[in-house]
Design a protein around this nucleic acid. Sequence first.
RNA 1: CGGGGUGUGGCUCAGACCGGUAGAGCGCACGGUUCGGGUCCGUGAGGUCCGCGGUUCAAAUCCGCGCACCCCGACCA
Length: 479
Amino acid sequence: MAEEKLPTRAEDFAEWYNQLVVRSDMADYAPVRGCMVVKPYGWALWENITSWLDAEFKKTGHVNAAFPTLIPLSFFEKEKEHVEGFAPELAVVTHGGGEELEEKLAVRPTSETIIGHMYAKWIKSWRDLPVLIVQWGSVLRWELRTKLFLRTAEFYWHEGHTAHASAEEALEEMYRILDIYERFCYEEAAIPVIKGTKSETERFAGAHTTTSIEAMMWDKRALQSGTSHYFSTNFSKAFDIQFLNRGNTLQYAETTSWAISSRIIGAIIMVHGDDQGLVLPPRLAPIQAVIVPIFRNDAEKGKVMDVADRVFLELKEAGIRVKMDDRDNVSSGFKFNDWEMRGVPLRVEIGPKDVEKGSVALARRDKPGKEGKTFVSQADLASTVNGLLADVQSSLLKRATDYFNANVHEPKDYEDLKQIVADGWAFAYWCESAECEARVKQDTKATTRNIPLNQPEGEGTCIVCGRPARRKVYFAKAY
RNA sequence: CGGGGUGUGGCUCAGACCGGUAGAGCGCACGGUUCGGGUCCGUGAGGUCCGCGGUUCAAAUCCGCGCACCCCGACCA
């Protein structure tokens, strides 16, 4: 750590992010261009994310499985749009065991093709449906510009792949998953998101319909934080996934796929982080409370540690993810800054004065300085801490929601839209033509994020061309 | 792919024009000191100076070739 302080977000948001990810011990740069190492602290956060999602998927009847990392290159040729979409970012294995391979193998950028191939083999009857499989793993997409978590060649995710007997069921599945994603963002990550449908140009390669959840980062750029796709029969036709229905006629399956990636960690960082460092939502934080004992000599140390150890056990037994910072080679001031950098939601300070008074000092991460510091009784501390953690969680969501609302605007006209997307999101009627979308992108670099599922009553006119428009869309610059 | 830049302890960099036994800060180890908001002092470990070739008594430094990485642009979930 050369410098002690991070650059402020206002000074240089990109640099703030880059330094924070490394200094908070979340991740590090790998020796391979475009790749990252997720460090134990970052992975612990990811595990908290994945375990919640995994439980929700299982509740809704999904099962986990694993498919190979290597996919015959020819599989990508089978779906025209899919191959066009992914060809530029494929990594291809050409040699194995010292020999050049007959059939080149792609390192999976996503698994629709190989899973489609297997589904064709497995699905023969309406009795085999639905198939509801989730794969947890990593994928590889060749990327030149790297940003840890947000854009790396290899990233971690789950990909759900389902097959259904009818379009209705498949669409229902797509929305069911989108709802789970939305709930994850609000309840766990404390991030407000917009659920909606992607425009034709922003749609997943090969999909009939792509839906997404979109979140606003601190710099007001949008981050697509999860996607859920309905393929209709595009992939089942390409891979010949057919079954005999109840009427004994051959029918193509209706399929979906959906994903949230480790990119969501970038969202958590960029939504909640402040100039001191990370701010993690308590429900996902690997460490929810850290105890910092404070003392000047051995006599004080003995007394303080007695209390600190007792408090540690009490919190731990109450199910709180608590950490004791008993390092003796750094000052307590250093520790305060250190845990703030790492985003621990709550700090428990215990010093000689607290031992005397039967109190502890609680400092909440979301409110820096004295404002967030309270002195509370040691009695019944676990419930006090739990209450405060819940309060931090809801305060983060409220703050992020207020920020979102304050930075979405409805443009009066096209000129107004240009102004708005320079530093915010615009919400406006759009005729849904690719021409108008392209013009906005050309003029402002902003793209359509999604067409929210919740639409206001009535109709309007396109903010770009003035023609009649049925639905409103969000325009914003995106990551 | 086009333009620009940089390669020197773990990190950030000085040294290079003007060739002469490789340096600083931070980090790390050890000892002490300190601890209620980024303590201080001492001791110490750690380097094929990106690679190959050339010039020279002598190359981190000069010359040639190569490699890698970074930044800007173009392209892109």
